[in-house]
């Protein structure tokens, strides 16, 4: 399966042109939306970041860590607390939330670095997420407890930050920036080390590559990306509640990673777009969302185990990501 043709130099140029063309076209999107569809589009951008951070760890690094909902919640609460309690402008809270997310990534990596791997890592990171949710519920003086944290009203350039169009441009900028940074990181020497660790950690270590540092940095970058997404989410909903960071969110983003294509940046985007938009179409069937969601995910897994991105790779080598490996 790994005989996929690599893109030629011309195709690579086309690809980098395409990369900028997509957000350029998206700049025009608000002309075609109403507040509802705009809200969904904003939600999709957040999902893209969450999925991207998740796929880095479970796809590229090959570690079964389910801590991304914890990073997401940490980012959202960091943003809300900084904005509401300390009066930090929300825009500034985005990188700060990312930093707190990275701290979460550091904690999660400490489990992996102790040698807790595979299903053990899955379970301990699940527990990490649920313990964080418990903390949001019970640390009432800091987090507002069950009432959650409302985001303060703010304006930017004379426009209220409750405006979905303004939010869209900010979300889009953050998303493009982080996707590009992640792509560059994965194409660098470091990215190759990440893949090497996934393929064979012992052999990688024997090449004098500091595997522990590779694991640590990947987790922290994942935490940073998802933490930033959390800050966007806090503004997206305008009110941060503990319930938003439970198992349902985790399962949704897990599904996005695999439906899009494990370990693929393009897949993260495709999965996030599809599975964020899909439940909106399922609104027509109240009470049956879970059933359809389950059936669709199972169907995609059976029909294309390597996700939607594999479909595009077959269409054109443009969509082949460097160092991406088809085999499980």
């Amino acid at each position: 399966m790994s005989q996929t043709k690599m893109p030629s130099a011309r195709q690579r140029r086309l690809r980098s042109w395409l990369f900028w063309a997509v957000p350029a076209v998206l700049l025009l999107l608000p002309l075609a939306t109403n507040p509802y569809t705009q809200f969904i589009a904003n939600g999709i951008l957040i999902s893209v970041l969450v999925t991207l951070g998740f796929t880095l760890v479970i796809g590229n690094l090959g570690q079964l860590a389910f801590a991304n909902t914890a990073f997401f919640g940490i980012g959202a609460y960091a943003s809300a607390i900084l904005a509401a309690k300390l009066g930090v402008p929300w825009l500034l809270t985005i990188p700060l939330a990312g930093a707190f997310g990275a701290l979460g990534g550091f904690l999660a990596s400490s489990a992996a670095l102790r040698g807790i791997r595979s299903y053990y890592l899955a379970i301990i990171t699940l527990a990490f997420g649920e313990l964080m949710r418990w903390a949001y519920l019970h640390a009432k003086p800091v987090t507002g407890g069950t009432d959650g944290m409302p985001m303060p009203r703010e304006t930017l350039l004379g426009t209220s930050l409750s405006d979905d169009t303004l939010k869209f441009y900010i979300f889009l900028a953050v998303t493009v920036l982080l996707v590009k940074a992640t792509l560059n990181l994965m194409r660098s020497r470091f990215g190759r080390a990440v893949m090497a660790v996934r393929e064979n950690e012992v052999a990688t270590a024997s090449l004098a590559i500091p595997t522990a540092r590779v694991i640590l940095v990947t987790f922290m970058w994942s935490g940073f990306v998802v933490g930033c997404a959390g800050a966007l989410f806090a503004r997206h909903v305008g009110h941060v509640f503990p319930e938003s960071f439970g198992m349902l969110h985790l399962i949704a983003s897990f599904a996005m990673v695999l439906v899009g294509g494990l370990g693929s940046v393009l897949g993260a985007v495709l999965g996030a777009v599809l599975l964020t938009a899909l439940p909106e179409y399922l609104r027509a069937f109240p009470g049956m969302e879970e059933l359809f969601f389950g059936l669709i995910v199972a169907g995609v897994l059976v029909a294309m185990p390597m996700g939607l991105a594999s479909l595009l790779r077959r269409v054109s080598p443009i969509f082949v990501e460097r160092f991406y490996r088809e085999a499980p």
């Binding site: 599904a255 059933l291 969601f293 389950g294 995910v297």
Partner: peptide, 8 residues
């Protein structure tokens, strides 16, 4: 996914 179908 199978669990979701059952729950659904």
């Amino acid at each position: 996914a199978a669990g979701y179908v059952l729950r659904g």
